[in-house]
């Protein structure tokens, strides 16, 4: 898939910039959903080794929740949102209008709530990119998991076809009010897909 592909710095920058706009839009939706201010770090677009991707989020045995969405259309790929265990509970509390700390475990209701957040964030991310480039994209139904980080991410990547040792990852961190919510966003584009994105931006790459 990503075998021996070199993406120039300019294209990497473009990728980072377009992610920044898309994710900014997503952060705004999350803020509206929670009725709270949401910050995010500058997105980072880079090729990573498998192990490095895990290290970005935390320990392999750490409990996290993950919303996984397949992206179809002009820029196919995979989107993953990963929230730490406590952030997951805090998200549910905020969404349900409860005091922080009320939720201590995850039931079906909580699962759907977190999956829906992933859905909304992905939708606004793609709307922003679609609006800017004219590209058409749609997502599959969100999938949800709540378990060990290593088990979730490796399964997610295996199932979406990221079998290479290196993967192109666009990553950012969302946080809200002293990290009461800390979430990672990952976009793993399929290789040919990126080309179409660059073309739409008027800067075709020779991949």
């Amino acid at each position: 898939m990503a075998e021996s592909i070199v993406i120039s710095d300019i294209h990497m920058d473009a990728l980072q910039e377009i992610s920044n706009i898309g994710l900014g839009n997503a952060a705004t939706s999350l803020a509206e959903l929670l009725n709270k201010k949401v910050d995010m770090s500058v997105p980072n677009a880079c090729f990573f080794d498998f192990e490095q991707v895990f290290d970005m989020v935390g320990g392999l045995e750490e409990v996290v929740s993950c919303v996984h969405l397949g992206v179809e259309g002009d820029v196919p790929g995979t989107i993953m949102f990963i929230f730490s265990e406590q952030s997951t509970y805090n998200l549910v509390d905020m969404l349900m209008g409860q005091d922080l700390g009320s939720t201590t475990g995850l039931d079906n209701m909580g699962e759907s709530a977190v999956a829906e957040i992933g859905n909304v964030l992905t939708g606004s991310f793609m709307n922003a990119i679609g609006g800017m480039t004219g590209l058409k994209m749609s997502t599959s139904v969100p999938m949800f998991a709540f378990d060990m980080l290593g088990a979730i991410m490796s399964s997610s990547m295996a199932a979406s076809g990221y079998w290479d040792d290196h993967v192109l990852v666009i990553e950012t961190l969302f946080f809200q009010n002293n990290e009461s919510i800390k979430g990672h966003f990952f976009l793993l584009p399929e290789t040919g897909a990126l080309n179409r994105l660059f073309e739409a931006l008027g800067m075709p790459a020779e991949l």
Binding site: S140, V141, M143, A145, S155, A159, G161
Partner: peptide, 17 residues
């Protein structure tokens, strides 16, 4: 060999586990 994700999706139906 577990199926980690809940929710239906064609790609996951291939069940790699």
């Amino acid at each position: 060999g577990a199926q980690m994700f809940s929710g239906l999706n064609e790609k996951f139906m291939l069940n790699i586990g």
